[in-house]
Design a protein around this nucleic acid. Structure first.
Length: 510
RNA sequence: GGCUCGUUCGUCUAUCGGUUAGGACUUCAGAUUUUCAUUCUGGCAAGAGGGGUUCGACUCCCCUACGGGCUACCA
């Protein structure tokens, strides 16, 4: 049976999306594109207590920044025919499905209060017999399995709070197939009677997820490994609804782990590792902030490239991928099974690579605002030229400014070490000669200028290293930077001469 | 604790029974360069441990260890 590929990214809006979530979205997106399918965004906001107001916008904006265009659902150009795509807007639907399960005997009403269950759990802690609401304990609890029909009707009539729980079958081996992990087995006796429908009238994740995936004709569920252990419940739910034929295939992605210490990366980790765990800067309702990759100066292409290679590999030695190349190369078979620790250094390397191969015209769009923020002026064309000259020295976007600063402003200080090493008594006189050469140059281009100065050096038998380094010192203020005569050409005759004069004035002779 | 998934250089990973176990990041050394950077060359560095199966195991099986996940009216 081949069916149209439809996958969804279904985050819950409880805060900013962290890089693990972005990667899940990315893999869904790649899979959809690879197979000519649809990529949906559904918002799973069934937990009213954890709802964070600006989280949904953040999610939409993050996906957009990464270039993960949503075909259907929240944030799509046109929402699509299977809406609404926010679970809170689908509230009534779930109730109907929950009741359907009760009627078919696959679920039941439970009246135990949260406090009673908490007490049982606490007791279980003490006696080292953990309390589980399952096929054994349900026989002794307050539910429609133990209570008489009249009693249940009475409680319902009286509007007593209730939940609907799944009636987990007894001693049944569930055989599961996962696209990444292969066969996985669970016995239902180890599973509990999960709440499907909460007393506040909202479904839990499990019910909403299954119902929506069914109704939205999802073909493949690609999600994090934290869901692997609820897969048997979900599969059993499909069976209980008699939806086995429409059941999606499952793929559980390995988790992204904390770089040091243990556990999976979590959004609560915020900035504690000294690098962002979020794609974009985050400002919470409570005023809490956290850094994002975008604001740190990562290109979305590099960020996506890095995420794609975290847990997936092409089987070749290619590491730098455009989105189109990723789509071409992607397959779930090449997704690894084990969790991966995130590595900031490698991420920076990806960005550096991307900075090198990004056209300078685009980088100029990043440089210009940085120039202006430092109270300098430039045109986009100038920035483009300068990016051409310096981009291989930058790792992050803000470096574009720090490695090109001298193009826009006169050096304020002169590197003492270079002065010490190169600026001897005869330098000012030599630089005066260089000024002459520059002022009288027929052809004010980098190559011609270099030729002229080199000729002077040769015919006068002076030290090339000394001249070049002192000239660099005068123009840049340090021993770093782009090709010397490119700098001369870009800043121009007047500025070059003025900087040399300034250096001669300010640098004391050794 | 129970269930479950996993385990190759410090990190990300290749290898789908036979390889000097390959690549990348990091790091170190060298080359190139007027400088810095880039680039290039080279070095260091790995199959958790123990049993099997096999002519032959990193690869298959079992046990142990270690790590991850789940174990909520959270997702």
């Amino acid at each position: 049976m081949t069916r149209k590929v439809r996958v969804r990214f279904a985050p819950s809006p409880t805060g900013p999306l962290h890089i693990g979530g972005v990667r899940t979205a990315l893999f869904n997106f790649l899979f959809a594109r690879k197979h000519g399918g649809d990529f949906l965004l559904r918002i799973e906001d069934t937990d009213q207590t954890r709802f964070v107001r600006n989280a949904e916008n953040y999610i939409v904006e993050s996906l957009a920044w990464c270039g993960l265009t949503v075909d259907e659902g929240i944030g799509a150009k046109t929402e699509g025919n299977y809406g609404p795509y926010r679970q809170s807007d689908r509230k009534e639907m779930y109730q109907e499905y929950a009741y359907r399960l009760v009627e078919s005997g696959n679920a039941y009403y439970a009246f135990d209060t949260a406090e009673e269950l908490a007490a049982l759990r606490a007791q279980g802690e003490e006696t080292k017999q953990p309390f589980v609401y399952n096929y054994l304990s349900r026989k002794k609890l307050q539910n429609s399995l133990t209570l008489s029909a009249e009693e249940v009707a009475r409680k319902l009539e009286a509007n007593e709070a209730f939940v609907i729980r799944f009636k987990m079958p007894e001693n049944f081996d569930v055989e599961l197939h996962d696209l990444i992990r292969g066969e996985v087995h669970y016995n239902t006796n180890e599973l509990d009677d999960k709440v499907l429908y909460k007393s506040d009238g909202m479904p839990t994740y499990h019910l909403a997820n299954v119902v929506d995936d069914y109704l939205m004709k999802i073909s493949h569920v690609i999600r994090g490994e934290e869901w692997l252990s609820s897969m048997p419940l979900h599969v059993l739910l499909y069976k209980s609804f008699a939806w086995e034929n429409e059941m999606p295939e499952f793929a559980h992605l390995p988790l992204i782990l904390k770089p040091q210490g243990q556990g999976k990366l979590s959004k609560r980790d915020g900035d504690k590792f000294g690098f962002p765990v979020f794609p974009l800067n985050w400002v919470g309702d409570n005023g809490e902030t956290a850094n994002g990759y975008r604001e740190w100066g990562f290109l979305p292409e590099a960020f996506v490239n890095m995420l794609a290679l975290l847990g997936w590999n092409p089987g070749t030695e290619q590491e730098i991928f455009t989105m189109d190349e990723l789509i071409q190369a992607f397959s779930l078979e090449r997704v690894g099974k084990s969790g991966a620790k995130f590595d900031l250094e490698k991420t920076k390397w990806f960005n550096q690579q991307w900075l090198h191969q990004t056209p300078s015209a685009r980088l100029a769009e990043f440089l210009l605002p940085l120039v202006e923020a430092h109270n300098c002026t430039a045109t986009l064309a100038q920035c483009e030229r300068i990016c051409d000259l310096v981009k291989e020295r930058a790792v992050l976007i803000p470096d574009l400014w720090t490695v090109s600063e001298y193009f826009f402003k006169v050096p304020e200080r002169y590197d003492a070490k270079i002065v010490q090493k190169r600026w001897s008594a005869e330098v000012p006189a030599l630089l005066e000669r260089v000024i002459q050469i520059i002022e009288t140059a027929q052809n004010f281009t980098s190559a011609a200028l270099e030729e002229d100065v080199k000729q002077f050096i040769q015919s006068n038998n002076v030290n090339m290293g000394q001249i070049f380094n002192c000239l660099r010192l005068a123009l840049v203020g340090s021993g770093t930077g782009a090709h010397l005569f490119d700098i001369v050409e870009v800043i121009g005759k007047q500025e070059t001469v003025s900087r040399i004069r300034r250096a001669i004035e300010r640098i004391p002779n050794n």
